[in-house]
Every structure is written in C-alpha cells, then in structure tokens.
C-alpha cells in the first residue's frame, strides 16, 4: 500500500464519518458517498498489488481480479443505497420542508420524564405508577 493510498483512505473515512454525524440528510448522504469511496479504495489498496488489468493474454503481472469484482459489486450496491437515501431525504423535504433528522418523540418524552422525576425528588410520575 502506498503512502498516498493510506492518506486517501484516512481522509475519506474521516470526512465520511464527520458527515455521517450531521443532522442534514443530504450531508449524511454525502458522507455515505465519501465513506463508500473510502471502502472501495481500501479493498483495492489492501487486497491486491497494482498490476496489469486481469485479462488473460495481457503482458506483465496481472492484478488480483477478485478484489476488483468485490468492489464492483460494492460500488453498485453503494449507488443503490445512495439513491434510496436521497429519495428519503427528498420525501422528508416534501413533508417537513427540511431534510433534517428529527429526534425520536417517544425517546424525548422518556428523557423529559426522567428529568422531571429527578427534580421532584424521586416522586414517580403519575403515569409510571403501576396500575
């Protein structure tokens, strides 16, 4: 693996991870795209040495075709995922007028209740008392 591939993988993964932790779905999708490219480079760079295209009859050392086949599949699957994710973002926009991932309502309610009970000095919320 060359130092350049190494750095490229590092940057792609870092940038991808960073984008994945965003709230905007478009940014998340960009993150998926970047990190997906990172994975593809990773598999090729670590799975085989550079060489000639693996077509029998070509001169020289042929590159390992298996990682290439795996990555080809991964590229297409990545495209499928991205397409669906962007449609999801689009649908989100047509509903809410933004593409942000809202927090889960029920979870927030539990959090709020837990905070309340903490304030009230361990008095349980009426709803929580067993019936």
């Amino acid at each position: 693996m060359s130092i350049w591939a190494f750095t490229l993988i590092a940057v792609l993964f870092a940038v991808g991870s960073y984008l994945l932790m965003e709230r905007s779905l478009t940014r998340v999708a960009l993150g998926v795209g970047v990190i997906g490219n990172g994975v593809n480079v990773l598999i090729i760079a670590s799975g085989s040495d550079a060489g000639e295209a693996p077509i029998i009859g070509r001169e020289g050392v042929l590159a390992d075709p298996l990682p290439q086949a795996l990555v080809l599949t991964a590229i297409v699957i990545g495209f499928a995922l991205l397409t669906f994710l962007m449609t999801l973002a689009w649908r989100n926009w047509t509903i809410t007028g933004n593409d942000e991932v809202e927090d889960d309502v029920e979870d927030r309610m539990i959090t709020r209740r837990a905070e309340q009970t903490a304030k009230l000095g361990d008095e349980p919320h009426p709803e929580d008392v067993q019936t």
């Binding site: 709230r23 927090d103 979870d107 927030r108 539990i110 837990a114 361990d122 349980p124 008392v129």
Partner: peptide
C-alpha cells in the same frame, strides 16, 4: 421498589436512548 425500579429504568433509558440519530 417497583416505582423506584421504573424510575431508575427511565433515567438509564433516557441517557442510553436519547433518540438522536447523530
């Protein structure tokens, strides 16, 4: 004990399950 268990569970769940994707 029952109420304290449920209240405690809620407090733990509130931390572990904040509902936020990021």
């Amino acid at each position: 004990v029952y109420d304290a268990t449920i209240a405690g569970a809620k407090r733990i769940t509130a931390v572990i399950q904040p509902g936020s994707l990021p």
